[in-house]
Design a protein around this nucleic acid. Structure first.
Lengths: 231, 231
DNA sequence: CGCTGTTGACTGACGCATCAGTTTGCTACG
DNA sequence: CGTAGCAAACTGATGCGTCAGTCAACAGCG
């Protein structure tokens, strides 16, 4: 009756576990019917991409499922085969963005010493700016739509924030114990960093500071660590 | 719920007491007919207050004009007597908030030396936090709904921001000339302050840091001026 | 290797609720 | 009694979700 959505079971191993066997040809065929887990996953992604573009363009409330379907090159009903509702679609989209961002930040931290708060901050902040730089739609989704849907969807934004803040707060607290950072509420300080990064990224969508992502990231690190008053 | 909803729910009796001796008494009478410029202005405010509460509660898109009318204790059509459209209503509401906030900031700066960046910052930031502390609905309107309406209404948010930033940037630039503040893009720095204040105010709606407005304001000033690294 | 039955991805029109805005009617004030 | 202030029914448009079909991709069978 209802759409299958997350098809039953779906063991993690099934990701690439399918006997690739025959199909050497491209399983991706934009207009064709999706068959098999690989193609269905591809279609799911195709819809998510379309939704991302549409939602980022016009906002969640203003966009219609018809717009999403059209952008995905599918019929209206097909979208409901993969997602049970408009909200669930947005939910899934946000989850994807969350993971991508988090991955990118971890990447940016690789090889840096977490003992040095300046290095840790710099890595995380640069990675975040770079991520947003390469994906403007994500910025809009996170800082415009996610806000707008207070309550049930703010959880995404604050989910990202909170995890980011947790990590930052830990780094800062450790640095405080070592005397590298002044005594101050670590969580509030960590939130401040996250807020600065987010707001600056959002602002960069509409305002051109004439600065590239790297410079802005360095500015944030310098501001947070050294302040505006000359040393 | 389509046909005659409340057939017999005639309001006559529900309309608070009689005008109890017209005389020079208060021209404000919630249910009464507004006559004269004073009373009409009062009714306008009454609708704006209701709209503020409703919009802050559920967001602009989700709220309906019927909700606003109900909250104002008026009929649906009456709202349209005072405002030509939902958007115009929101527009007027934002304009009011803008002016109130700006007034409050000017108040906070009174008697402080603009020559001292720390004093200027402290005055403006404290005033802003206090304003938001006393008017949570304003925070939501400004930092949630205003964002969400990208384009046509972001002008309000950025209007407030830009003016605030202009002033801050000026103070900072002057301080830079005096060597009180390091060389850095003044506008970006000013925006950072505004962003921090806004985001912290918004966060305080849902998260309890256990800090009161004054402490947070001082934290922001200290962070911006001195940074996290010990001096 | 055709033929056929079955599954399930996909289509698109329709039901139904929601709401912004309009119209019409009513009543208190001057 | 004319009109300003308001009440409430009404209209039209919009958009989410549904559902009865359609048809490609496979069996399994002979």
């Amino acid at each position: 009756m209802s759409a299958p959505v997350a098809a039953g079971a779906a063991p993690p191993g099934a990701l690439a576990g399918e006997p690739a066997a025959g199909g050497p040809a491209a399983p991706e065929d934009p207009g064709r019917r999706a068959v098999g887990d690989r193609q269905k996953e591809a279609r799911r992604l195709q819809i998510l991409q379309a939704a991302k573009s549409v939602f980022a363009d016009a906002g969640f409330q203003t966009s219609t499922m018809a717009d999403v379907a059209k952008a995905a090159g599918l019929s209206y009903g097909a979208v409901y085969w993969y997602f049970p509702s408009k909200e669930e679609l947005f939910h899934a989209l946000m989850q994807m963005e969350e993971e991508l961002l988090r991955l990118r930040i971890l990447e940016g931290l690789a090889g840096r010493s977490l003992e040095d708060p300046r290095q840790a901050l710099s890595g995380a902040i640069r990675a975040t700016f770079e991520f947003f730089e390469g994906d403007k739609a994500a910025v809009k989704l996170l800082f415009r739509d996610s806000y707008a849907m207070g309550g049930r969807f703010e959880s995404h934004l604050s989910g990202i924030y909170e995890r980011f803040i947790d990590d930052l707060a830990e780094v800062l607290a450790a640095a405080q114990r070592r005397g590298q950072v002044i005594a101050a509420p670590a969580r509030v300080a960590a939130f401040s960093v996250a807020a600065l990064v987010g707001q600056l990224a959002y602002r960069r969508l509409s305002t051109d500071d004439g600065l590239d992502a790297e410079v802005v990231a360095d500015f944030v690190v310098a501001l947070i660590m050294d302040g505006l008053r000359p040393r």
